[in-house]
Nucleic acid binder design. Structure first.
Lengths: 237, 237
DNA sequence: GTCTATAACCGGATAGAC
DNA sequence: GTCTATCCGGTTATAGAC
């Protein structure tokens, strides 16, 4: 079958594809896709209420009403962006949780996979988990998705503590630290510090060192996580 | 003096005063103070652009134009809140940095002191470091303050790495983890999980375990930090 | 698919009475 | 200090031509 180009920006699929077929060479983003890209930048910087449809249209280079040919409402633009970010994350973490491996390896793989995904995303998702968005009753779907992700992370930490692989401690606080670091990773991705200087592994190492009961176990965890990592990526399942 | 119950909110003035005269016993929040409290909640949830002066006024129980008797603009309300949050943080961290102690103890004391301060604040400061606010050119003052805080944290981590007290690693990433956790602490404070179940020490422990080259050094670091802690609090200098 | 013109609304802020 | 009434600029979204 081969990878289809989904007409857009180098879709996520393309960026990560291990082999390219010759048809993917050109790949000019259509208007709809350019709207999503520019909107993601503006939403990240100015927030949902701080971003106007005029600004998005100007960034794309079309008139403000032309936006409404491609999307029914401003909200629909934001929804598509948030879904693009959150659905693969929840699905990937669910696959990891069900896998046969230690909680530490699963957590390590999740952090690596998630940061890799964020860095490779064509969109700027810094704002995806702003309180402003999560508390908007009209965007309740995303509260659910974020809560699902957080709950899965929390249960991973709990079961690691129960098996003795992780040190005892407030599992809720630990989960918040993981989720805070991942939210921050969206910022790394655009300041491009992460792209140039840092590795997903470093973030995972930082978290695991703080959780593991036995620091020397880290190398083994890393090896197990590398085997698990493809599971997190929807293309490889 | 004795502990007064603060009916609701302890006013900022009271919290920081080293000595109380007897006239402060009752402490009914005046309108101006109530505006700040309600505005902090709404700003935290809906963001700056997502919060209207009409909503703030309704929460306080006055008419919308009455706000403008107490504050010249909507922005002035936000500015006062952000200053209240950021000025003591930067000043406290500066005092810690200049103190005579190990970087690890200073970092531990900062995290403890900062979370304690957040939990005790009468305001809900969840939104204080949203990109929406930090990127607003009219609020550039706060970018400076946040950058100062982050730079001081970063230099603390760097010098700990240079002395061998901390493990090698990306100091920028480590600083981001600290700052992300503290930003999240503003959320803890209102979900009141932190107030009930968690201790500032747990957060500091979580971070230090991930940074220390020698995990067994943690107990000594904690003891040194406890001596340092009063330095962070402006009331005790 | 994109445009111009515009409807309908909501935002911050002011005027002036009490 | 607080109110009612109001101004005015900016915002989302629609209508209809090309």
């Amino acid at each position: 079958m081969g990878l289809r180009i989904d007409n857009g920006i180098r879709s996520v699929v393309d960026m990560n594809s291990t082999e390219n077929d010759e048809t993917t060479a050109v790949d000019p983003p259509d208007t709809r896709e350019r709207i999503l890209i520019e909107a993601s930048r503006l939403l990240a910087v100015n927030g949902y209420h701080g971003t106007t449809t005029r600004e998005i249209a100007a960034a794309v280079g079309i008139s403000q009403p032309s936006l409404f040919f491609h999307f029914p409402t401003k909200r629909a633009i934001a929804e598509e962006l948030y879904k693009h970010d959150l659905l693969p994350a929840v699905a990937g973490l669910e696959r990891l949780v069900e896998a046969d491996a230690s909680p530490a390896a699963k957590l390590y793989a999740m952090i690596c996979g998630e940061i890799t995904r964020i860095v490779n995303s064509p969109y700027d998702m810094r704002a995806h988990i702003s309180y402003e968005v999560l508390n908007d009753p009209d965007l309740a779907l995303f509260q659910d998705l974020v809560n699902q992700f957080d709950d899965l992370t929390h249960s991973l930490i709990r079961s690691g503590q129960e098996s003795g692989e992780f040190a005892e401690g407030d599992s809720w606080l630990a989960q918040q630290m993981v989720s805070a670091l991942l939210a921050r990773a969206n910022l790394f991705a655009t300041t491009d510090h992460l792209k140039r200087h840092s590795h997903p592994d470093e973030a995972a190492t930082l978290i695991l060192r703080s959780l593991l009961a036995e620091p020397d176990a880290l190398e083994g965890v890393r090896r197990d996580a590398m085997v698990l990592l493809p599971l997190y990526d929807e293309r490889s399942v």
